[in-house]
Design a protein around this nucleic acid. Structure first.
Lengths: 220, 220
DNA sequence: AATGATTTTAAGCTTTCTTTAAGAAAGGTA
DNA sequence: TACCTTTCTTAAAGAAAGCTTAAAATCATT
């Protein structure tokens, strides 16, 4: 399970993140509301945990914007004010749950599990790596369309990121086992994909391991 | 089994190292937290034993940094404070076990054995010697890329460190059995590899045994 | 059939690796 | 020491692998 956590109190965030980690929940954390919103629109999270009080944009604003854009990722609101008022406001805006600070992290884990146990609201099948998300249904990478051959390669790389895949392997997967000698197909499409990753300003890249193949990995 | 032990109390460290040695566990020891972190990131240890109280950087910091970098080497924390608080903090941060000082060294051995009995968390195919680790999948030596010929020689030397391998042997392995008389190939690539070991500031080197061949061994 | 998208083909270009060769250095021996 | 052998190092030529592009061919849709 992967969640987004928008919280400006670093101390609290650290503690929460490590408990969630322990529970096998991987967390992307940001202290910034704007950045939180940018991340929250991506269809890669199983849930979003939103603090209400944030510098700049408020948690409510994020929640509202997301629901207006018809993004249905489950959201849990966190608020220092244990006011019923806040809770009602949040739930009315489309939050799925509400937790008053201070809370037990075990409580948060339980609610996350409860939320994501529900039949997923998003029925798209998505695989993600780094800042990339690939939608198997409509063959889009971060919402841009891929052709069939582009897709078959990207899909393979994303299903096994950080691992080298040979040209022969990619070729037989995309074109069938009788395509030996046509390695240039793969080179051409790797080139196309790189151009698209470039355009997306992704923090991932396709790395060539000469004479072995390619792997998808994060830049650096 | 090879472990990293970060501990600033030299007297204790000496005793522990002695016992572990006796149990066939080889230990790299450092008293310095910074150096500990530098070593800990290398994928050559079966486990890491971390004292909490260290001059400079704390054991928790090291633990946290490692887990943030997604390094999954099993870690045992040592703490003078037998406080439940410390234990919980450590385990929440991703430690695999916790031992309160003073402890019986036999206890430490037992826990190390228990930890490393588990299926390996690292899925990379890596062979290591000294401070060197060679990744068979993408042909990197301490994360720097090797060409095919460099790789075939390095791999051979690392699989049988401290043993002399003749030029003829390395030649037929890398180039095929019909390459007799081309010993200079091997000489050239040994030279390239030495340059890379130099760049890595490795504590290992390739030693020439005149008229017999080469062996990989630690400097000194 | 016309249009646009995708795939295949091919050629030229760039980068990286391997081979070659020659001179320098080191080691061994009379 | 002088001489011979082995090993080291380097640079440069040549080969191989990979990249990019554009045009031709194919396919799908209206």
């Amino acid at each position: 399970m992967r969640i987004l956590y928008v919280e400006d109190e670093k101390f609290l965030a650290d503690a929460v993140i490590h408990v969630l980690d322990k529970s096998g929940i991987s967390v992307d954390w940001t202290a910034d509301g704007e950045e939180g919103l940018d991340l929250a629109v991506k269809p890669i999270y199983d849930a979003i945990v939103l603090d209400v009080m944030l510098p700049g944009i408020s948690g409510f604003d994020i929640l509202k914007t997301l629901r207006e854009r018809n993004i249905k990722t489950p959201i849990i609101m966190l608020s220092a004010l244990s006011q019923a008022e806040d809770k009602i406001k949040g739930l009315n805006f489309g939050a799925d749950d509400y937790l008053a600070k201070p809370f037990k992290t075990s409580e948060l884990v339980a609610r996350l599990r409860a939320l994501t146990r529900r039949p997923p609201l998003q029925d798209e099948k998505i695989i993600s790596f780094g800042d990339l998300y690939y939608n198997l249904e409509d063959r889009t990478l971060n919402d841009i369309h891929l052709s069939e051959k582009e897709a078959v390669i990207m899909e393979s790389l994303m299903k096994n990121p950080d691992h080298v895949q040979s040209k022969e392997y990619l070729l037989t997967h995309g074109w069938g086992s009788d395509s030996v000698g046509e390695e240039n197909y793969v080179e051409v499409y790797i080139s196309y994909l790189r151009k698209k990753l470039e355009k997306l300003k992704s923090n991932c890249k396709i790395k060539t391991i000469r004479s072995l193949g390619y792997k998808l990995c994060s830049k650096s």
